[in-house]
Amino acid sequence: MATPDPILSLPPGLEAAKSEVLPPLINIKPINWFFDLNRAMSLWPVTFGLACCAIEMMSVSMARFDMARFGAEVFRPSIRQADLMMVTGTVTRKLAPTVVRLYEQMPAPKYVMACGNCAISGGPFKFEGQYGVVEGVDQLLPVDVYVPGCPPRPEAILEGLFFIQEKLTSRRWWPKPQELPPDPAPAAKGKK
């Protein structure tokens, strides 16, 4: 798991999550692999949206994109029953202590997906003199996968889920999407 970056400074009054994931008690490789496989195929995300990226999270759980096909089926309203936290949206300075607290309440093993540019770096709200936004949720929580986009497409969120599954089981379980045809050459910049 990534550790919070000590170089980036948090706004005064905020603290990063303190909980850490302990190594398993019985450390036998095949057994761990078996448990991890089971975990990877039934990740339970928490119903937790902070801003517009949450709309894409809803979309990805609905019939068209259907996250349930890949195991992340049950959105849990309580963080104590979930093991995947999708930080979908802007983490404001005011809500940050709550986000940290939620993360600390989540039973291990736990995974964090930073969805969208706001959760990754502050996104459009990062400017000199801003007072209300935490510039990147990785200052507060250890983030496992970053899904860029503003907001990310549902397919991107699915890919983020596949990354977490890959992280757990060290292989990709789903076919790779078809490559898009290469972009046409960008038009030469003309003078206005």
Binding site: P12, G13, R93, K94, Y131, G132
Partner: peptide
């Protein structure tokens, strides 16, 4: 709108 412990 600001956090309770806003210091600036």
């Amino acid at each position: 709108l600001l956090p309770d412990d806003f210091q600036a």
